[in-house]
Design a protein around this nucleic acid. Structure first.
Lengths: 341, 341
DNA sequence: TATGCTTTTTCAAACTTTTTCACTGTCTTA
DNA sequence: TAAGACAGTGAAAAAGTTTGAAAAAGCATA
């Protein structure tokens, strides 16, 4: 009933009394073919809606034109924007993207990478899990001649190009902004210091304090392990209940900032007048909280697109010694939670 | 430097002095092979880490084990959860998923479907755009013997299995809940009535009113065209400024509800005491608004997973006459925005 | 006309896996 | 004992496309 038989290159050849090779070359713009033949073939192909058999092409060329992409979680505003950006960029270049998620666990990441390798992807884009230190499972891609590009969360143990946000600068701007707004006792809800971007955000925060003549108070820096709303809530609670409560918080993530906001509101602190708040990542929700949440935008779409471009460039150059780290600028979005009225 | 040569089935055959066919059969669990041979081959394969060449298998079997999935937008909490669910379910069954987005435009949807068809996917999972009425571009899949499953937003013009949320029931529950909480003047910010789920939610709302002896006021039903926060804001504004303002709003989506909430707060209405609010879809943000937003959960993960299962079942049965519509239950999550204190 | 050169086309191989058909023994049964 | 069943294996073909080498064709020059 179904299964309309599709026309193949061979069929065209037979019909036009040409060899398959000629047809192939005519369609692929190979030089030294008579204009006449090219026209003939192209017209016939168009008329009969010839579509090359993807599987045969892949097989013959030994490549799939599919890129693998592993993120900790798809259901996460930042990652879904990078995915969206990657998808569009890949499509433009004739590639498609196969997704997998690690749930921020090394074990799942290893499985996902093996899975994608098995699917025959040409290259891999990955934001590694918080648990990833060694990278044998990623080295396997390089060993098979497949390129890898790391983005956002990276590990230095894999010699590959890397694409990160300028976390240091973003954190610096956020902190400096709070200082300019008149806050002086600025706490930081950070992440695990072994994780690169957590460390950079902390260092940016620290530098901003120093540059403005403020002293970093150790007890004002709290390290979130899982980067959850609950941690934001409880750390803020303990900070505000301490003898020396801060008057502003710079949070490693909007979700943590939201936890902070929820605690502050529940304890009847006025935001931004009593306590200022800035997050990081510009989650969708930060536009819609009350007050709206200031945040550092990471341009997720651009990042995903750029990662794809870097990967494809690798594939084309087969220059596998490139280990440069590209830094993308961030942008501080000042909203209600940090502008004293 | 790279390109470690991978071992092939042929290599194994030569090494073990067997024919490729025997090796193939041994690895694929074909009967009527001596246990001895099977063991020999399997051990050798394992030892040398033989991985079948995906492209060759696809080519030979004339299938890719890749499913296409088109959603209006990836960066959307509900869709990203369905994607996540679909991904996991597909992986479990040995399939992978290639994504594309339509941005809710027919034109982009047609392009995306052609793109996926060209990539040689075995089947398609799609939530159609609001603009999709006719479905020639999807019929093309069926014509080529590829299965299609529609989910969430569907069009009746394509004879395929469908998977939807029980929008009617969800809307009914939401509205009935508002009534039980004591609200009597319940408005509805709906979507375009041509869109199936918008219509169903409206009908559920209407039925709940009728069943509880309330009369539907035409001026309390506003139709959002793009389902945005801005529409929620402005429609709520005009409703509240009318001569006969409602005391509760049931919104087609959490985003619209958020717009409503933002207006209500800006105009100093107290939620939930003066105005009750219920959304739909249980976006992540609804847990974090102030007050938290009651919503109807759609079980996105389950939906994505179920869609994959339905599609794979089709592929296996090649039963292309199945056009049944499966309805998934929803769950009302009662939060702060609709519980009078 | 032979030679050389360029342009255009064809030939044949190759890529890996699966599957159909055929073959050889061995065992069972009428 | 002849016929048939069956287990176990191999040989070969097939799938659609691309590519390097070779061949053919066309044309001009010596």
């Amino acid at each position: 009933m179904n299964e309309k038989r599709k026309i193949t290159l061979k069929d065209i050849a037979k019909e036009l009394k040409l060899s398959p090779s000629t047809v192939s070359r005519a369609l692929n713009g190979y030089p030294s073919l008579s204009e006449e033949t090219i026209q003939l073939v192209k017209e016939y192909a168009a008329k009969h809606q010839y579509v090359p058999n993807t599987m045969a092409v892949n097989f013959r060329k030994n490549r799939t034109s599919i890129l693998g992409m592993i993120v900790p979680q798809i259901v996460h505003h930042f990652f879904s924007t990078t995915i969206s950006g990657a998808l569009e960029a890949a499509k433009k270049r004739g590639y498609s993207v196969l997704l997998a998620q690690s749930y921020d666990h090394l074990k799942e990441e290893v499985l996902a990478s093996q899975y994608l390798l098995g699917m025959g992807v040409d290259g891999l884009i990955i934001s590694v899990s918080n648990e990833t230190k060694e990278a044998e499972h990623l080295q396997a891609f390089l060993d098979e001649g497949k390129a890898v590009v790391q983005f956002d969360k990276i590990t230095e143990s894999l010699p590959s190009p890397k694409l990160v946000v300028d976390d240091f600068e973003g954190a610096y701007q956020a902190t400096a902004h709070l200082i300019r707004e008149g806050y002086r006792k600025i706490a930081h809800l950070s992440g695990r210091m072994e994780v690169k971007n957590a460390e950079q955000r902390f260092l940016g925060y620290k530098k901003a304090l120093e540059d403005h003549g403020l002293v970093l108070q150790e007890e004002w820096v709290k390290s979130c392990f899982d980067i959850t709303e609950e941690e934001g809530f409880s750390f803020t609670k303990s900070l505000m209940e301490s003898q020396n409560p801060p008057d502003a918080l710079f949070c490693i993530t909007d979700l943590v900032a939201l936890g902070a906001m929820n605690y502050l509101k529940s304890a009847n602190y006025s935001i931004p007048n009593q306590v200022g708040l800035v997050g990081f990542s510009n989650w969708m929700l930060s536009e819609f909280t009350s007050p709206t949440l200031s945040s550092v935008d990471q341009f997720g779409e651009e990042m995903g697109a750029k990662a794809v471009e870097m990967l494809i460039e690798q594939l084309q150059n087969t220059d596998f010694n490139n280990t440069e780290t590209v830094q993308l600028k961030t942008k501080l979005l000042v909203r209600g939670s940090s502008t004293k009225s």
